[in-house]
Nucleic acid binder design. Structure first.
Lengths: 150, 150
DNA sequence: GAGAATTGTTTTAGGCTTCAAGTATGTTGA
DNA sequence: TCAACATACTTGAAGCCTAAAACAATTCTC
C-alpha cells in the first residue's frame, strides 16, 4: 500500500478515536452532542452573538443544519433567536445565562479530556506534531487550490 | 489556550478538510458516499465475504447502521446478502461482479486523491508525521485504558 | 422608484448514525 | 431436555448532515 494512504488511514483512525471518545463523554456526562457543544462554543467566543450564517461558516456546516441545531438548543433554553434589527433577513443567536453556565462546565471538562488524552506525548513530540500538521494543512490547501484552478 | 487543545483542533480541522474533500469527490465523480465506499472496501479485502457483524466491527459502526447500508448497496446491485448456511442468524455479504468493478475504479481514484493531497509534504515529513501519529495513538490508548480501569 | 440580483434563512427529501427494543437462532448446563 | 443465556440481525425513534428549492428581505441599477 502507498505510504500516503497509510499515513491518511492512521491520521483518520487517530482522530476518529479521539472524537468518538469525546462524543461518548458528552453524551454520558452531559447528555449532549458534539454539534451542540460546538455551536455553544462558537457563541461563547462571540459576545454579541452570531447570525445563523456566521455560525454555519464557523462550524463548516450548511445553513439548514444550523437551523435545526438552533431550534433544538433554543427548545432547551440554552440560546435565543432574535431577528437582527439592522437586517431583518438575519437571525442573531446568543447564549442565555443558562447556556453560558452550561457551556462553561462542559468546556472545562472538555479541556481536561483533551489534556488527558495527549498526556502520553512529550511536549517536544506534541510541538513537532503540531508543526507537521500545519505543514500538511498548507500542503493540502495548495493541492486543493491547484485543483480548483483547472 | 492550552497547547493540547490547539494540537487537537489542528488535527481535527486537517482531517476534516481531507475527509470533506473525499466525500465531495465521491459524490460528484461517482455519485456515492464515504460509508458506501468503506463498506465495499471492507468486502474487497474479504474474498469469502463478511457477516454484517464483522463489517460493523471493521467499520467501527453499529449493527443497525450496517443493516441500512447493506440494504441500499444491495438495491444498487453492488453486494448480495446470503444467509450463512452454518449459522442461520448470520447474514453474509459479498461483492457482486459489478460491485467489485465499481469498487476497483473508485479505489484507484481514491488512492490518487490521497497521494495528491499529501504531495506537498516531503517524504521525511510524511514519515515523521506517520511516526508521531503512531505515538499519539498508543499514548491515547493507554490514557483510555487507565480511564477504563477506574 | 421598479425590477433584478443578492443575501439570509427555512424547508424538503434523502442518507448516515446511534441507542434501545424486538425477533430469531444458537449454546449451555442443571 | 429444556430453560436461561448469548449472539446476529432488524426495526423504530431521534438527531445530524447535505444539496436543492422556496421564501423573504435587502441592495443595486437603471
Amino acid at each position: 500500500m502507498k505510504a500516503e494512504l497509510r499515513l491518511w488511514l492512521r491520521m483518520l483512525t487517530t482522530t476518529t478515536t479521539i472524537e468518538a471518545e469525546i462524543r461518548r463523554r458528552l453524551r454520558v456526562q452531559f447528555n449532549t452532542t458534539l454539534p451542540r457543544f460546538d455551536l455553544l462554543a462558537a457563541l461563547d467566543r462571540a459576545p454579541e452573538g452570531l447570525t445563523l450564517g456566521e455560525v454555519s461558516a464557523r462550524m463548516m456546516v450548511t445553513n439548514g443544519n444550523v437551523t435545526g441545531l438552533a431550534t433544538r438548543l433554543e427548545a432547551e433554553g440554552l440560546v435565543v433567536r432574535r431577528v437582527d434589527p439592522n437586517d431583518r433577513r438575519a437571525v442573531r443567536l446568543t447564549l442565555t445565562e443558562e447556556g453560558r453556565a452550561v457551556f462553561d462546565t462542559q468546556s472545562a471538562a472538555h479541556g481536561r479530556w483533551i489534556k488527558e488524552m495527549f498526556a502520553g506525548l512529550a511536549p517536544e513530540e506534541r510541538e513537532a506534531l503540531h508543526q507537521l500538521l500545519g505543514r500538511a494543512k498548507t500542503a493540502l490547501s495548495t493541492a486543493l487550490e491547484t485543483e480548483e484552478a483547472l
